[in-house]
Design a protein around this nucleic acid. Structure first.
Lengths: 382, 382
DNA sequence: ACACTGTGAGAGACCGCTCTCTCAATTGCC
DNA sequence: GGCAATTGAGAGAGCGGTCTCTCACAGTGT
């Protein structure tokens, strides 16, 4: 029977934690045997095993994951690189990811890139140095990513989330951004809206409406806000409505800028009767802009947002939003990663998750006829 | 001159990354020398150093942090255990923490406890196994925490954040919750409010107002919502105002419950003219409740919240809130930790950071006299 | 009685680094 | 010019595990 407080006795200085050797010595077995018991591998007799365990307990043995990782060649650790952990979307994805990972005995190291390619590269590099068994990346650069290609080439499983990188042979989990925005706009059109604005972000080199078509060709590898703007255009076209450049509020991705852009749009002689905001920050800005514009909300102008955040239900009218399965994106990505780690060598696959249009008061009422008569805007196509 | 694409040549299978030995062999030096260059320690000649670096580059050498950690005895890693990474407060703290850590060459492993003692213990254990050089913990159990005591005893620097554990010899960084709430209520009283409600959470075993006094004695080791409730009581007493049990909305920590509790309070024959909500979730609930109550907002009843979140400025009137220096809490905690790691052995210290009352429209106007006459409630003390 | 199999446990080779020791070579100084 | 001091580089011992090999020892079948 081992002493209950063996730890205060022999061994090393109080600073150094007991090792397998210490436990082995205390239990009177070889290091190999103690390691087998503690590491839960190999064959060990019942009696010996429980004796080792008792002594380990008494000594306060804590396995050293570094050593385990070194020796075993795997670390039971996954990496998670996202743009911004403060963003609720990533917060939820992270949650889904860690839940699944932890369920399989994996820990997660989190790093964020702040949407900076530089930081993303450092984060990925660091995770590689830590020898994670796989990692999720919400990539910042979508057209090329040498660091990710190198990582994939080196054999570390990688799964992309939320965004996809062109030509990268890695699994990818995201939503159909184009489709989600298209459906949202279709919903507005159904409600009688014909003059619909959109709040999106500046697209580098793609600022003009005409170029959205080009973006459409490659919309999976475009920032989510751009893909969604593409969906907006497609929905209008499908309904035979004109795409009006003034109704596209383009601004740098900051709340004041987005606010100003929407305010400007609402000050047009003929303002939109609804605004689609393509992500949470833009929804915040658009909501505030409409509220401050003097237009009756939702009577004269309403908002349809992205991301189902807390505050969208405390405002009146409650906001209709496109809800993303953030948690599921993380969870699915984790499952994909674990499958790869387990040896799945099938070709890289892209998983599209469904969004949900959460209908609330802001779009509940059918729109009245436009307040002012307008020249016919092109004959509707058959 | 080393070949630019040395990596495709000899060495190991493509899966195994090159090691110092590989680099050393390529550069024609001993392992020790290559390690010195790559690990940036010891003395090495200029020429040799750059030759090694060239070959390392060409081979695509990636240091193995596990091995480094093993050999060096420190991992250049800090741990961060918080209740809920989705909460903006922790998100910001985390940001402050990682910014400071990264600045000193440390990476951060994040774990969250979901406010579950069980999970917290696991998280701490895991970080210990990973041999972090120090960790921040936002503790869940405030009265006792064996696992933290053990960790402290084993010599790993620990810093508590946001909450303090009674009797634990560890540095602690938090705000003066009692004072912050007291000041907030004082601000309301200054504005002419005399009937002030508070939305807080169920206190296990401390549900009665009279017992808040007891909590006050130990308020640093109480949940933040409780400490703030104590501050509320103190402010009322200091102003000679009665503490009315019906004006203390106590509910489980969930939005619907908090909402219901505040609604009930507002339905009293004589409802409060202002409600202090002691954290972000409660602020959300209180705001919604007041808005739905039928009382004019802020004319008849207003809200003063905690935590300066995005949405508090999009609602009208904009909300006056107590802003916490969340980022600074994380940053300060990280600095404290790094100091300890550097050998600071001074006694454990508790750092109190300042909160800021952000005055906005919701409390801008001076209150009109109460709508209905009321019996004098006790003579004011001199 | 003898080789045959299965099982428990020890030996020892790594894993990829850091760091101390040691030693040869270069430099400085009187 | 001889000797100590400085500098560059190699050897080798860990760090704390995993895992393969090997071997002693029972329990079988013939």
């Amino acid at each position: 029977m081992p002493d209950v407080r063996e730890r205060s006795q022999g061994g090393g200085p109080s600073g150094s934690r007991p090792t397998v050797d210490d436990v082995a010595a205390a239990a009177g077995v070889s290091r190999a045997t103690a390691a087998r018991v503690l590491g839960d591998y190999g064959r060990v007799g019942q009696a010996t095993a429980s004796r080792v365990r008792q002594h380990a307990e008494a000594l306060g043995y804590t396995p050293n994951r570094l050593a385990q990782g070194m020796a075993a060649g795997r670390t039971q650790t996954l990496g998670f690189v996202s743009a911004d952990m403060q963003n609720p979307f990533f917060g939820q994805s992270m949650r889904g990811f860690t839940d699944v990972a932890r369920g399989q005995g994996y820990d997660v190291i989190i790093a964020n890139s702040e949407e900076e390619p530089q930081l993303e590269r450092r984060a990925v590099q660091t995770l590689l140095e830590r020898r994670v068994d796989g990692m999720l990346v919400a990539p910042t650069e979508l057209r090329q990513a040498r660091h990710l290609e190198d990582a994939v080439a080196s054999g570390v499983p990688i799964v992309l989330a939320d965004r996809s990188v062109r030509g990268l042979a890695a699994d990818c989990v995201l939503i159909d951004n184009v489709g989600a925005a298209r459906d949202a706009v279709a919903h507005l059109i159904e409600r009688g809206h014909e003059r619909i604005g959109v709040a999106t972000t500046h697209l580098t080199g793609l600022d003009l409406v005409s170029e959205l078509d080009e973006a459409a060709l490659d919309s999976w590898h475009a920032p989510t806000t751009v893909s969604r703007a593409v969906g907006y255009v497609q929905a209008l076209r499908a309904a035979g409505l004109p795409v009006v450049p003034e109704l596209i509020a383009l601004a740098p991705y900051r709340r004041p800028d987005a606010y100003a852009a929407v305010r400007a749009m609402l000050a047009l002689p003929e303002p939109p009767t609804a605004v689609l905001a393509v992500d949470d920050l833009l929804t915040l800005a658009a909501f505030e802009a409409v509220q401050d514009s003097g237009l009756r909300f939702p009577g004269e102008c309403t908002v349809l947002g992205f991301d189902d955040l807390d505050w969208t239900t405390i405002v009146r009218p409650r906001l209709t939003v496109v809800a993303q399965p953030a948690y599921d994106i993380g969870a699915t990505a984790a499952r994909r990663l674990l499958a790869r780690i387990d040896g799945d060598t099938s070709p890289a696959q892209t998983l599209l998750l469904d969004t949900k249009l959460v209908e609330r008061e802001s779009t509940a009422a059918r729109r009245p006829r436009p307040r002012q008569a307008r020249a016919t805007t092109g004959a509707e196509p058959a």
